[in-house]
Design a binder for these strands. Structure first.
Lengths: 206, 206
DNA sequence: ACCTGAACACCGTTCAAGT
DNA sequence: ACCTGAACACCGTTCAAGT
């Protein structure tokens, strides 16, 4: 039974299993992962380049699942389109925060961000952002989305209400917590960025 | 020579050595770290709780070095104060991007962000941000700074200019790269956020 | 209190052997 | 082509022993 008639593994199977395993709260370790797959560790190496390859497989699976190949529908104004596009990335991230943290440690080999960037560029052109600010603005949106998603990883009580004084101490007790806090923060940040872009364009054009 | 007259190690010494070691491009491994310190691995455990403790010591050292205990000078308008405060955090992050990525993996035990948050809260009060938006706005600024700093970790050519078409393909060749790109992105993002905050407050107050 | 050295369980990776 | 099993170098952690 050294070689089964049908392969028990594939890059996709390994990637998906790793995502499940990691999001369940486990560290990514190949021995237990292989066990979960009903296979020995060494088998993984026929499909994936070691531990790093597993992480890339995870990314591959998530992108295939979340990021559509075709451009999205183009209705609505530029701000709507930005929101819709970023929402996709946001979902990918926040549905798999622990996988996201892992992906941070490996070099990305697939330039799949291309379509996402392209959509954002087109939306910003429509918004009237000057050429020499467009890519930088796209990067800003990207960085914020990323940072906001990672924020979901940090434990809730970074700030102990008891130790805070002044206005901060006054505001902390009534503040949102958990996923709701994280989501509200993301929405508000996107609002501020869009508002900032709009205001900047308005001022420049008169 | 089992116990030297003066201790060869301390939490600070270990933390500082680990930062140097990691920022030099190495993975954080205790055996080589101990060697660098002229000591056996097991000695580290007298000062720090294992590998995770080393990472916390790294954070401790960096915060002590970068984040002042006392509030910063209060001159300038609220936007200036926000910029000044965030610049400190930004420096801490971007001067040590690889340490930053490591810190992401451990739970922070010290609530040292308190003072930073407090300063930002006060600045936003002055800006006229309504109470129920203040903390969320602070979190937005924090998340963006964090995401922007991590952006420095990703390799420069995520997007191959050759494969891009349309406006994106037109803009890519002339775009900044490396640290300059990262810094320009951070500055622009902060501009947009501040502009967004200002515009939002103006609209609400009439 | 602090450093050592040996011991432990476990990890990722390689590779010849089997179908 | 794909799974196995053994072997390898190495890792983090623990702990009794030494000063």
């Amino acid at each position: 039974m050294a070689r089964p008639r049908e392969a028990k593994l594939s890059r996709e199977i390994i990637g998906r299993a790793a995502i499940e395993y990691v999001e369940a709260g486990n560290d990514l370790q190949l021995v237990p992962l292989a066990k979960k797959l009903g296979v020995r560790v060494s088998s993984l190496y026929h499909h994936v380049r070691g531990r790093e390859g597993v992480i890339q497989a995870m990314r591959h699976v998530l992108v295939a699942e979340y990021v559509p190949d075709q451009p999205m529908q183009e209705d609505g104004d530029w701000a709507d389109r930005v929101r819709r596009e970023v929402e996709t990335t946001w979902r990918l991230y926040t549905d798999h925060p622990r996988s996201l943290a892992l992906m941070l440690t490996v070099v990305i080999d697939e330039p799949d961000v291309m379509r996402v960037y392209s959509t954002l560029v087109d939306a910003l052109v429509e918004a009237g952002v000057p050429d020499d600010e467009i890519l930088t603005t796209v990067e800003v949106i990207d960085a914020f989305t990323f940072g906001a998603a990672l924020d979901a990883l940090s434990p809730d009580q970074i700030l102990e209400p008891e130790e805070a004084d002044g206005k901060l101490g006054e505001l902390l007790p009534g503040h949102l917590v958990g996923r709701a806090r994280n989501r509200a923060m993301f929405d508000h940040g996107l609002d501020l960025l869009i508002e900032g872009i709009r205001s900047r364009v308005d001022r420049a054009s008169g």
